[in-house]
Nucleic acid binder design. Structure first.
Lengths: 190, 190
DNA sequence: ACCTGAACACCGTTCAAGT
DNA sequence: ACCTGAACACCGTTCAAGT
């Protein structure tokens, strides 16, 4: 979905600067980084930020859409390297790690898999849901994943487990363990 | 841990009004309800709010400590009524429902089970951890819960699953299902 | 068509003055 | 000892004026 008309040169330049500034700011300060500060970093009036990115979520999406699409592609790589069940857990792990590392991404991924997920988030949402669907289907065919699990449920639970691991430790050192608890269940190992 | 000296009458009255106003505001607007608005509702200067509750979390804790202790007591009720494994899942469910219904409570419970949980949150933290510990121990003795699960891990995962169910639907209608997925695991039912 | 930045409404926090 | 509310620094958002 490219721009129907190319942007004016100054607009294009401001757009790029804003994106760079935003990526920096989100990485440093998380999803709530000051928008005004981002505009200042980009050397741009605050109104210009709003013109290009009417909502904070729009800016977050623009800042992370590449990474997210890379994560989608990563799912397919893993599917080739590993048996379906393992590919799925490994992907959830890498997804969680990315969510924790790139501090602004959590809100974005959350919104993308939320119920009324904003129509504007189609890019991230469909990338994630598509990747999840392929992994889920393969694992179900293999018989290592509950047949009644919806891809979006997997994403939401992954998000929740990541949240849980952040409670344990800002860096999510417990992420692997918590994912294991999810996949194996809380009942005794049998 | 009662006050060593009783509060002056006007201070006591302001304290109570602030708490009532805060409970209202948190219920309506969630954990980020405006503190200034809370002070205004209570008919009190904003400085007075800060005198009694130096941080937002302190106010949240004060507003919800009763409910949280009730949830702790509820754990023991359930332990008498149900077999340990069921008592545990049911408690997690009720905990999740409360977290979702009382909009301000989520942040509080989250902080209470977080790693560096603020020393000020001892009341909520110990109530939750104590209740969880009793349920976990019983279920482990019964053999329906993994022996290596720490009570605080249960609380964190419960928090995470609640988050997941909020993504599915603001009201958490999927909470029961998501808890089942956690307890049974993502592998096929055997 | 796009940009700027002042203006507005809001919020959290502090603190001098008051009782 | 406690309360008040003005003052400060900050933030998001809009919009008239400019190019």
């Amino acid at each position: 979905m490219a721009q129907s008309r190319p942007m004016r040169a100054d607009a294009r330049r401001n757009y790029d600067r804003l994106l760079a500034a935003a990526t920096e700011a989100f990485a440093e300060q998380g999803e709530n980084a000051s928008l005004d500060d981002i505009a200042k970093r980009a050397g741009v009036g605050s109104g210009t930020l709003y013109r290009h990115f009417p909502t904070r979520l729009a800016l977050l999406e623009a800042a992370y859409v590449d990474r997210i699409e890379a994560l989608g592609a990563r799912a397919d790589e893993l599917a080739e390297e590993l048996p379906p069940g393992e590919a799925l857990t490994e992907w959830l792990y890498e997804l969680g790690v990315a969510t924790i590392r790139m501090r602004g991404m959590k809100a974005l991924l959350g919104s993308a898999v939320a119920d009324g997920s904003s129509a504007a988030l189609t890019a991230c949402g469909t990338a994630m849901k598509g990747a999840a669907a392929r992994l889920v289907e393969a694992a179900q065919a293999e018989g290592t994943l509950r047949a009644d699990l919806e891809p979006v449920e997997l994403l939401r639970l992954g998000h929740g487990v990541t949240t849980a691991s952040e409670l344990a430790n800002g860096q999510g050192r417990e992420l692997r363990r918590y994912l294991t608890l999810l996949t194996e269940g809380l009942r005794p190992a049998g």
